[in-house]
């Protein structure tokens, strides 16, 4: 009896507030838009046969016919991929240096990496608005050093979105790589060097392959949330930065086209399934390797 309650309570909660809402999104993505409240035609209210008759894929056909959506999906994928790569470029050297740091520094270094994660995401993105704007800190600094003579336009461009994603998701990249490098047996690198490898060769042939799991885990942890990101493109990106999270938001709040917004959500989820499954598999393999 106790066991039943224990299972039933969280189970019901998640069914009611996670799975069912999701099915509703799916259903609304297949219904028609209407100028009413709620602004769509409910399809399930009059039985199962009319339900299947009323289903239509015109929202998906609309998504396929309009360039905007294709471009938004592709550009989200591109932005997420490039920023994941940039985060890896910034994060790997940091994780490497942390793993090489004296033992007694490591807890402090770890805390310094984790601390920004506890700070509000919105505030961390906002901080860059003041730095990247036309008369912002970065431009003032560059003008002062004489490197540039005209202020650069960075805020409201895709470059600012890259900076924002790298900045906010950096801890997610550093921590798994650090965990992998921390476990790495230093004598393997010494052995490689004794056997005639240069330091760079030893790094490329021994350290990188042995930290592969950390690199893969970190990359997924950045790529997956970056793909559906909304706050960063809407605060730092400009009108030229198309990202699907922003499109969904605008479709919902500005155009009030719920069926199309739901269809956008369903396709975004379909795109996300591949990296999520790959990520799960990587985590599982790693867990098995550890046992």
């Amino acid at each position: 009896m106790q066991r039943l309650i224990l299972i039933a309570v969280p189970y019901t909660w998640l069914l009611a507030l996670f799975l069912v809402p999701f099915l509703i999104v799916f259903k609304i993505s297949l219904s028609d838009v209407e100028l009413a409240i709620p602004p769509y035609t409910p399809t399930l209210s009059d039985g199962i046969v009319p339900f299947f008759k009323a289903l239509d894929f015109e929202n998906f056909a609309f998504l396929a016919s309009d360039d905007l959506y294709w471009k938004a999906y592709l550009s989200s994928l591109r932005i997420a991929l490039i920023s994941t790569f940039l985060t890896l470029l910034v994060g790997y050297p940091m994780a490497y240096a942390m793993a090489r740091a004296p033992e007694e520094w490591r807890p402090t270094l770890m805390m310094l990496v984790i601390l920004p994660f506890w700070t509000s995401f919105l505030i961390r993105v906002y901080a860059w608005m003041g730095i990247l704007s036309q008369e912002g800190f970065l431009n003032q600094f560059l003008l002062w050093t004489g490197l540039i003579s005209e202020p650069l336009t960075i805020l409201n461009t895709t470059t600012a979105v890259y900076i924002g994603i790298v900045y906010t998701y950096l801890p997610f990249m550093i921590l798994p790589i650090f965990a992998a490098l921390d476990r790495l047996d230093g004598s393997l690198i010494e052995a490689a060097e004794d056997l005639g490898c240069s330091r760079f060769q030893a790094f490329w042939l021994v350290t990188i392959p042995l930290s592969k799991n950390g690199i893969v885990a970190g990359s997924f942890l950045v790529f997956i949330p970056a793909l559906g990101e909304f706050v960063i493109p809407s605060l730092l990106g400009g009108s030229g930065t198309l990202m699907i999270g922003k499109v969904l938001w605008e479709e919902f709040f500005n155009n009030r086209d719920w069926p199309v917004a739901s269809a956008v959500a369903v396709i975004l989820l379909l795109i996300l399934i591949i990296p999520i499954v790959l990520f799960q598999r990587n985590q599982q393999r790693q867990a098995e390797a550890e046992q």
């Binding site: 299972i7 969280p10 189970y11 998640l14 069914l15 507030l17 996670f18 799975l19 069912v20 809402p21 999701f22 509703i24 999104v25 609304i28 709620p38 997956i224 949330p225 793909l227 559906g228 990101e229 909304f230 999270g245 969904l248 938001w249 919902f252 719920w258 917004a261 739901s262 959500a265 975004l268 989820l269 996300l272 999520i276 990520f279 799960q280």
Partner: peptide, 28 residues
């Protein structure tokens, strides 16, 4: 399996989708 799926899925679900789906439920 469904249970453990429902535990892990929200961790990777884009917030815009979670928000949208809950709103549609509450209105429903």
């Amino acid at each position: 399996t469904v249970f453990s799926g429902m535990i892990y899925a929200p961790l990777v679900m884009p917030e815009v989708i979670t928000g949208l789906s809950l709103l549609l439920l509450f209105i429903g």
